[in-house]
Design a protein around this nucleic acid. Structure first.
Length: 200
DNA sequence: GATTGGATCGCCT
DNA sequence: GGCGATCCAATCG
């Protein structure tokens, strides 16, 4: 189980994230998100993302400036921003742009690829399509915790490894899921016809 | 100090 | 398709 090394070799550099949030959200599609918990590696291919902007986006936690919850959104690009939602779940984001811009990309769905058995145990679900087809589902499947908030993806504990889109795969753009403010902005991106996205 | 509601999920009908 | 779980950040007074 030395699989970890081959993914670390292709770790996306910090500069990948320190760019326009919409660009990062689109270019994360097809890449490989992993978590190494010290013993086991779980990994999936990113098939759905959403951009949360640092300016003019009322749905973004950063809309009214720095608060205790969203302070990580104002950290350097390429860090994990993890928050609790509905009292019971957690969501995983990656910070983008320059630190003064409170922006991030929400990872909404993965195609499970490595450590599938462990994901199934963590989820208590066995159908592959039920493992990572939602932001809180993939956090649970990968074993990501709120303690990882602020962690740099350059550490290689949680990280994204390069792996582009396949030939013929097309990116679809829609409005974001589950928000009421700024609900009309086209900031959700997913791989068209992919069976692992959270919603069509 | 109190109230409100949320970047969700899974079970129920 | 509807709704309860369950907590705390954000907002208001």
């Amino acid at each position: 189980m030395i699989k970890k090394e081959k993914y670390l070799q292709k770790l996306l550099p910090q500069k990948f994230y320190q760019r326009d949030t919409v660009t990062v959200a689109k270019e994360l599609l097809g890449q490989l998100l992993f978590h190494f918990d010290g013993i086991n590696l779980t990994l999936g291919r990113i098939v759905e993302t959403e951009a949360y902007l640092g300016e003019g986006d009322a749905a973004s936690h950063s809309f009214r400036g720095v608060t205790p919850r969203c302070r990580t959104m104002f950290a350097r690009a390429g860090k994990a921003y993890i928050y609790q939602i509905y009292g019971v779940h957690h969501c995983f984001n990656i910070t983008t742009e320059l630190p003064e811009i409170g922006s991030a990309v929400l990872i909404r769905a993965l195609e499970p690829l490595e450590g599938v058995e462990l994901m199934q145990r963590r989820r208590g679900r066995y159908n592959l399509r039920d493992l990572c087809s939602g932001p809180a589902k993939l956090v649970q499947a990968l074993g990501i915790k709120k303690e990882h908030d602020g962690l740099s993806l350059a550490e290689g504990v949680i990280g994204v490894s390069r792996h582009g889109l396949s030939v013929g795969e097309v990116i679809y753009t829609t409005t974001r899921v589950g928000i009421t403010k700024a609900a009309d902005l086209p900031l959700r991106f997913y791989i068209k016809d992919n069976q692992y996205v959270s919603k069509k």
